[in-house]
Amino acid sequence: MVIPVHDVNPVRRTPWVTYALIAANVLVFLFTPGLAGSVAGESSLAQSCHLHAFLQHWAAVPQELIHHRMPRLVPTGDVGIGVQGAGCVVAPPSYDKSPVLSVFTAMFLHGSWLHLLGNMLFLLIFGNNVEDRMGHVGFTLFYVACGYVASYGFAFLNAESADPLIGASGAIAGVLGAYLVLYPRARVWVLVPFLIFLPLRLPAWLVLGFWFVLQAVYSAGEGVSDAGTVAYAAHIVGFLAGMALAWPLKPGTPPPPEPRGLLFGRNARPRRTW
């Protein structure tokens, strides 16, 4: 897996929507019960019960999206003592939930600091150029549309799943797909783990193409042990949706500048030709 750190592709306007999305995701995470206070994502039973109740209320659940009905019992956030010991109390839901709206709210929920920071890093690096090309309003609609397509695509493939679906990954996957279509030759600085983190400047088509292939492999359950807890299928659907939506903009997109005289982040001496 490569870690992108910067792209050589300047923008013409300030990416206010990208910045606002990052700020909103961070703020929501800080106010998510049982998560922000723990770097490792660990919490007490009471915090865990509160978190499960919070996610059940605000996250997207495939069963609810496909069948348009709430479960009979949901976590209340309280801790109780049963025949098997302490656990989270469940009861009939005391609130009305819109499955369609839950897709939107789920885009701003994350399960850990690592989940949040990874998503925001990709959004910061690749979102600014896509926003620059689409405009602020167009990018906002595009981002939300990719998130919805990714969530419903995953739900159709996992219609009986009752696990909450959270994270901006589907929408951000759409951003990556759009970037690949619009700026395939842009150079991206990445860190490649090879004994040490080796900095390399690679074309966007290679970085994002490799990312997409990994998602496909992981979605098939190959080479990863937590394929059941990460919605890799949503990443694939979001990526393809982003490519499709960005394709009409490709003909009028100016090419990124071709960087010269750079080698592993340092200025290289020009070579004489005589």
Rank of each mutant, 00 (worst) to 15 (best):
F154W: 10
P71L: 03
L176Y: 07
F239L: 03
R133F: 08
V90G: 01
Y152V: 12
Y183T: 13
G85D: 00
A145H: 04
L21R: 06
E131K: 10
T253D: 02
G87A: 07
P93W: 03
A159R: 04
T140A: 15
H67F: 14
G153W: 05
S44K: 09
A231E: 10
L109R: 01
A186Y: 06
L200A: 08
P256R: 06
N267V: 15
G153R: 01
G238R: 00
M243R: 02
W113C: 09
G209R: 08
F104T: 02
M1G: 14
W205V: 05
A241T: 10
G238T: 05
V100R: 12
R12T: 10
G170W: 09
H50A: 14
L165F: 09
A216L: 15
Y232P: 11
A178K: 03
R260W: 02
G174E: 05
Y218T: 13
V90E: 11
A234V: 10
L263S: 14
L198H: 00
A216V: 15
W211D: 10
G85F: 02
H57K: 15
P184V: 01
T229C: 04
I66G: 00
A186N: 05
A268D: 09
F194D: 05
R69W: 03
V26R: 06
D78W: 12
P10V: 12
L206P: 07
L176M: 07
F29R: 07
S98H: 09
Q84R: 14
E222C: 02
Y152A: 03
S43Q: 08
V74S: 01
A60M: 07
H52P: 00
C88M: 03
I166M: 02
R13M: 07
L30P: 00
P251K: 04
G138P: 10
S219F: 14
A244Q: 08
S219V: 14
G177H: 06
G265P: 05
L65Q: 11
N129L: 11
V103Q: 03
W16A: 14
Q47N: 11
L30I: 14
A145M: 11
N119G: 15
V26G: 06
P254T: 06
A220S: 13
A106H: 03
A155V: 07
V213W: 11
F29H: 05
F104H: 07
K97D: 07
E64R: 04
V90Y: 12
L114F: 06
R266C: 01
N158I: 08
Y183I: 05
S44Y: 13
H235M: 13
V192Y: 12
V26D: 07
P248M: 07
A268P: 00
L208K: 00
L123I: 11
V144A: 13
A91P: 09
L51T: 02
F29S: 05
A36M: 08
V213A: 14
